[in-house]
Write a protein that binds this DNA or RNA. Sequence first.
DNA 1: ATGCCGGATAATATCCGA
Length: 267
Amino acid sequence: MRLATWNVNSVKARLPRLLDWLAATRPDVLCLQETKCPDGAFPVAEVGELGYSVASHSDGRWNGVAVLSRIGLTDVMVGFPGEPGFPEPEARAISATCAGLRVWSVYVPNGRSLDSPHYEYKLAWLAALREALRDQLRSGMPLAVCGDFNVAPTDADVWDPTLFIGSTHVTELERQALADLRALGLLDVIPRPMKGPHPFTYWDYRAGMFHQNKGMRIDLVYASSSFTDAVQSAYVDREARKGKGPSDHAPIVVDAELAVPVGPREA
DNA sequence: ATGCCGGATAATATCCGA
C-alpha cells in the first residue's frame, strides 16, 4: 500500500499539480490538508477520473481536510468527539477506513504566538486528539495519523533552532503533546529526504527559503506498530515543491507491505 | 538551476500562514 499526505495550500489553486502528482505517484490513499475549499466545491469529479473516492471536510475559507482513496473508503468520520473549536470546531480532522487501515488526515491549529489564545487552542486540540486516538487504537485496526501537525518534533527538524526561540512549533508543551501521542503507541514514520540530511516538509515561500533548504519537518505520519512493521520506505517528495505554483509543503509518501484486500480496488 | 510569497475573500486591502 502506498500512503501519502500533503498540505496543498488550496486544492483549487493546486488542482493541476495535484492531478499530475496523483497520476505520477499513484498513492493508494492520500491525506490532504488546507484544502481551503468551500463546502461542496471539492473537485471530486477530477480526482474521480483518476480512480479516487473522496471524503472531505470543509470550512470555507480556511483549513479543510480530505482523504482520497482508490482502495476503498468507508466509515468516514468528520472531526472527532470532544474536538475543541475556536469557538466552534473547524475543519481540521477527517478519518476513514481504507482496505483495513484506519487513516486520519489532520490539520493541527497553528498557534500563532505563545501569548495567543490560538496557542492554548492548539494544545487543547492536540490533547483532545490524543483521547480520540486512544479510542481508535482500542479497535486494534492498523492506524495512520497523517497531516500537518504544526510542531517540529526536535531541534533537528528546523533549519535554525536559535531563530525559533520564543516561537510556536518548537516549545516544550507542543513537543510534549506529540510525545503524548507517541505514548499511546504511535510511532513517527520519519521519511527519507531526497536531498541533504533533513527530511523537511515545509519551506516558507518567502526569501528563497526552499532554495536555501531552510525548512521544517512539521508534516508527520504517526502510526501504530501494526502499520509501521509493514513500512518498507518513506520519503519527502521535494520535487513537488519545485517549479511554478507549488504548495509551500511537500508530500510525504510511505510504502508499506500492508495487504490490500481484493475487492473494491480498481485498476 | 529549485531561484527569492501566495492563498483566501467581505477584494483594489486585509487576514492568514510557521
